[in-house]
Simulated assay, not measured.
Amino acid sequence: MKERILFLCTGNYYRSRFAELLFNYLAEKEELPFQSFSKGLRLSKRNKGPLSLYTNNYLRDKNIELPSRLRMPIPVSKDDFSYYDRIIAMDEVEHRKLMQEFFPVEENRIEYWSFADDYIEKPDLVLPKLEAKVYALVNQLKK
């Protein structure tokens, strides 16, 4: 059985989806027994479609094939905290507050990374750093 990793962000549209899609691509390529998914802590009606154009374009530029049918963003639920083996939130500053608000019991049981949203830091700066972090995670799991 594959271990399940959940990437969390606010809207499940940009950062967490990027991490999910890149991780699954790399895990399959390396034949690792891991599968990732992503969900959001506070979905937004501002999102236009299932996936950020930044995420879409960056992955396509790297020749990473996207699924033919992309799903819409999904909110995280209480049950997810027991279902997934590892949960990683994309930005501690932003997501710890949301965890305290919505899932205070789980706040300290998840990992936090430091990748700001696109209205704070430009995607052309964030995505290469997030890509490197996902690669590092995959390399760590290969050992």
Rank of each mutant, 00 (worst) to 15 (best):
Y119S: 12
M90S: 11
M90K: 03
E94I: 09
R96I: 06
S114D: 13
A116R: 02
D118M: 06
I120N: 01
A89K: 01
I110N: 06
V93P: 00
R109H: 13
M99I: 11
D118Q: 04
I88Q: 01
E111Y: 04
A89T: 03
P104T: 12
E101L: 15
D91K: 06
D91G: 07
I110A: 07
W113T: 07
E94K: 11
P104N: 14
V93H: 12
L125N: 07
R96S: 11
A116S: 10
K97G: 06
D91N: 15
I88G: 01
R96F: 11
E107N: 10
D124G: 00
Y112P: 10
Y119L: 11
M90Y: 07
I120E: 06
D117K: 03
A89G: 00
E121V: 14
A116P: 08
L98M: 15
Q100E: 15
F115W: 05
Y119D: 14
Y119G: 04
Y112T: 01
D91A: 08
A116Y: 06
V126I: 13
D91M: 00
V126C: 04
R109W: 09
I120A: 03
F103A: 10
E101S: 12
Y119E: 14
S114L: 03
E106R: 08
P104V: 13
P123I: 03
I120H: 01
M99L: 15
I88A: 00
M90L: 11
E121Q: 10
P123S: 12
D118T: 03
I88T: 02
K97L: 14
I88R: 02
D118I: 05
D118H: 04
V126G: 05
P123H: 05
F115S: 01
F102Y: 14
E92G: 12
F102L: 15
M99F: 13
F115C: 05
I110Y: 05
P123L: 02
L98R: 15
F103E: 06
M99W: 12
E121L: 05
S114Y: 10
F102I: 07
F115E: 07
E92T: 04
P104F: 15
E101V: 08
K97C: 06
N108T: 09
